[in-house]
Design a protein around this nucleic acid. Structure first.
Lengths: 244, 244
DNA sequence: CGATTGTTTGAGGAATATCAATATGTGTGG
DNA sequence: CCACACATATTGATATTCCTCAAACAATCG
């Protein structure tokens, strides 16, 4: 048992569950309480659902390997990709408040997740205010991300949107200690296009342009950022400036 | 003192603080605890800041009269209007997690707000799990609203966006027991345009079209929805269907 | 290796931004 | 209460971006 806890602690130290358990005033005993509730990595096949919109909330998931996309289906049947998640990201917070998942999470490729079951969470949240605060902070960060994306969709042209996404993914890799110049574009072009609010033909053309302008190079599935300053500049230059 | 509590209880019963205090298993004593911490309505002048992005979080505010807009400024200096808030709406949740406001709230007109100071909230949240859950639920609803708006900006044309906004505002009025066919468009056209990710000239033209098509009529500052079914239909018809 | 699925390229057109001019509304001092 | 000035909103003509449709191309899987 002690051995298992040790193993989990090690696994968690590299992902956002670390962010979730460790820094905010939890003592060793509390950390152990939390970690003993996390079931270690298990597999999710490519194209398999992790959870589905409307389904009852069962657990929080931390991606330990692979990648996921989340999407929502609205009343009119329109689908919007909400985000892409890589190793170290936390999935399922959307279901915490209403005990029902508000979006669908699907594995882009063969992946692995750790699992923190719901029934433990409620309990832990009451016992550990620090954990409660950290969960709120993570929810709040999702809100900030959404707002950033609203700004991107509302104010930027196709090039700016693509550049913003690449910069964002690059930053997230940097915070995980990975090579920030290399970004995985594992998802289908259609999903990328959906996420960015444009058509896949446009995605293709924009990536081409960035490439021939020398800001990027790489393959279909992974690009390398050659000039990150120039890329940031294009992400920052809006399609238009708001009136007034 | 009893008289004041009574007055506040009455005032709250019409706004989302009611939603916040009353329904989720709080007993009378707990409600009284919460209400005695809410300072009653005070004035906010038109064009005055309620709180500013980056400022430390001091309190939650419930709009009791008037209207507000919230906006974020990103690193590149681009501004995005995040939402419009009317009587009964709750403002400031964005600051709860990090104790820092993530957006700016500005009064569109002379308004009034009730105030729930921060130092009480932390305390109350630990004592009353039901309150904690309700606050999480409200945060989660903001997330859902943002996601809905992402879908609107990503998938709909200008007519669909405008129709979606009008339907949304109308629904919110309905939940407050107000006339759902009448919608206030108190904000500047430029703010409306910013929120919808288009230019104010386009806002103007789209409103004109909806009006001449007989779905709407009204003045510059307030419109009446003449055919809400047809308006919903236009809100639902996307600019395009996602690939795949 | 053929079938299927996913991606890129090209030509044309529709939606919407831009620019410029006009109109309407709002507040202030006479 | 009017008239002027300034802010806000509408209208019109043109330009541009990006979507649409169609076809070729590349990758993936049995």
């Amino acid at each position: 048992m002690a051995k298992q806890t040790e193993r989990i602690k090690h696994a968690c130290s590299r992902c956002s569950l670390a962010d979730l358990c460790l820094p905010y005033g939890l003592d060793l005993d509390e950390i152990a309480q939390l970690e003993s509730n996390v079931s270690p990595s298990h597999d999710v096949a490519g194209d398999a659902l992790l959870f589905d919109q409307g389904e009852s909330f069962q657990a929080l998931y931390a991606v330990s390997a692979g990648s996921f996309k989340t999407s929502v289906l609205d009343a009119d049947g329109l689908e919007q990709i909400m985000g892409f998640y890589y190793a170290g990201d936390l999935l399922g917070l959307d279901g915490l408040a209403d005990k029902t998942h508000q979006c669908t999470a699907l594995a882009i490729e063969h992946s692995q997740v750790c699992r923190l079951p719901f029934d433990q969470i409620e309990n832990l949240m009451t016992r550990l205010p620090a954990l409660r605060n950290q969960l709120m902070r993570l929810m709040s960060r999702e809100l900030t991300d959404d707002e950033q994306q609203l700004l991107t969709l509302g104010r930027k042209n196709s090039e700016g949107r693509m550049a913003s996404l690449l910069i964002g993914l690059s930053r997230r890799r940097a915070t995980r200690g990975l090579d920030a110049s290399r970004v995985s574009l594992n998802m289908k072009r259609a999903d990328l296009a959906n996420y960015l609010g444009m058509r896949m033909e446009t995605v293709s053309r924009v990536l081409n342009k960035l490439q021939s302008d020398g800001l990027l190079h790489g393959t279909r599935r992974e690009v390398t950022i050659a000039d990150s300053a120039a890329l940031s500049a294009r992400a920052g230059s809006a399609a238009w400036i708001a009136d007034q």
